[in-house]
């Protein structure tokens, strides 16, 4: 497993050529069809949703879209979803529940978008609703953090039966930069924050936030996207088979307890 510090991983996941969901979706899923819109307001390009097959079985895929260049990033708002993105995700998750197919969420976002329109359309409510609805969704949910798992904007697609992280992915309550800026009033202390915050896959495994680490090729996913996709695929086939063994009641009980037990306090 990786010996890199959080700061070093931060630069790995910022590598220009790091694969995104646009690379992974064709490598992982067959017959993929993108489905658009939240049926209330619009379609958010920061989240791709759709149906396809994995190992021959139907699945629903919900994925946050980092761009591979500035043009793509402008189109997908640097993977910072608006409320309609989260509502599209919920619509597709409910649809998956109806047809009893697993939901696979690919998480890669700096966070939910912060802006006037996002507030007007209820960014807080949209995220909250997903947390509650995903908790009781009657079909297996697997979330994989591909690169950046930023705050509530990531969590809204990460209430799941199992969370996996790519080896160099990070998942945090706020970006290290934001952390340094708020707690120390000094955004330049980003690396120090990253190394303090306990945000690597190994850290999150210890906390019980993450269940599995998916290895990346030496030097990072960008050195071999196909091999990385194979590693993801290997994990997915294993986990989907395992989750399929539970009946719905057991599945939901396990999901509830996964989050229920997280907390550090004395009494």
């Amino acid at each position: 497993m990786s010996e890199l510090t959080a700061t070093q991983r931060l630069s790995v996941i910022r590598e220009k050529g790091r694969p995104t969901v646009r690379d992974y979706i064709p490598l992982l899923f067959g017959n993929f069809l993108e489905l658009h819109g939240d049926r209330h307001f619009g379609d958010d390009a920061a989240i791709i949703g759709g149906i396809g097959t994995f190992a021959g079985r139907p699945v629903t895929v919900i994925a946050q879209v980092k761009g591979r260049n500035l043009e793509e990033n402008k189109l997908s708002n640097f993977s910072m979803p608006h409320p309609e993105g989260y509502r599209k995700a919920l619509r597709l998750a409910k649809q998956a529940e109806k047809f009893r197919r697993p939901v696979i969420c690919l998480v890669d976002t700096p966070g939910a978008f912060c802006g006037i329109e996002a507030e007007k359309r209820g960014q807080g409510e949209a995220i909250a609703r997903n947390l509650m609805e995903f908790m009781t969704l009657k079909t297996p949910i697997v979330s994989i953090v591909l690169g950046e798992g930023g705050s509530g904007g990531a969590l809204a697609l990460a209430v799941c039966d199992e969370l996996a992280m790519l080896e160099n992915a990070l998942y945090s309550v706020i970006s290290p930069r934001g952390f340094a800026s708020i707690l120390w009033k000094d955004a330049s202390r980003e690396s120090e924050a990253a190394d303090l915050m306990k945000i690597t896959a190994e850290d999150l495994l210890k906390f019980g936030v993450c269940e599995h680490i998916i290895p990346e090729p030496d030097g990072g996913a960008h050195h071999d996207p196909t091999l990385t996709a194979e590693n993801i695929s290997h994990y997915l086939s294993e986990v989907l088979q395992r989750l399929a063994a539970y009946d719905t009641e057991e599945l939901l009980e396990k999901r509830y307890n996964k989050f229920r037990k997280i907390g550090v306090f004395s009494e």
């Binding site: 509650m132 705050s151 969590l155 998942y171 309550v173 952390f179 906390f207 509830y256 907390g263 550090v264």
Partner: peptide
């Protein structure tokens, strides 16, 4: 908002509380 001094553990409280609310509602 979330208490940043507790890192990812504080983020998880959002999911935990929402789960308990779902059950109360059900």
């Amino acid at each position: 908002g979330a208490r940043m001094q507790e890192g990812i553990i504080s983020l998880m409280q959002m999911a935990k509380t929402s789960g308990a609310i779902a059950r109360h509602g059900e």
